[in-house]
């Protein structure tokens, strides 16, 4: 059920598709599902993505400068995909079907 499991679990689920997912898509989706409003919560969720990437559970497949302000003007947009390590780690946690 949406909004019931730890945020990092849901992030891994959302990034578990071929081609990966853009950080702003994931952040918006989570904000909606978990009813987390405001800039601080948005940045906080985005930082969870950065931590996951830093620990090699996610890796970015595409990076782009946010020129138009899709997310935050002048910042980087990352497209993340789950790594094999991330899949293995998530197997007993959230990605039951992997």
């Amino acid at each position: 059920m949406a909004g019931n499991r730890p945020i990092k679990f849901r992030i891994l689920e959302l990034c578990n598709k071929s081609g990966g997912a853009w950080n702003y898509e994931v952040v918006r989706q989570i904000q909606k599902e978990y009813n987390l409003k405001g800039d601080y919560q948005r940045d906080s969720i985005n930082f969870d993505l950065i931590e996951l990437a830093s620990c090699s559970l996610l890796r970015d497949v595409e990076v782009m400068v946010d020129e138009e302000g899709i997310y935050k003007k002048g910042f980087l947009l990352h497209k993340y995909v789950i790594t094999d390590f991330g899949k293995a780690r998530a197997e007993n946690a959230c990605l039951m079907y992997v």
């Binding site: 730890p6 891994l12 620990c55 780690r89």
Partner: peptide
């Protein structure tokens, strides 16, 4: 901490 937030 792989899959949880540090503060929590």
């Amino acid at each position: 901490l792989d899959i949880a937030e540090p503060d929590v």
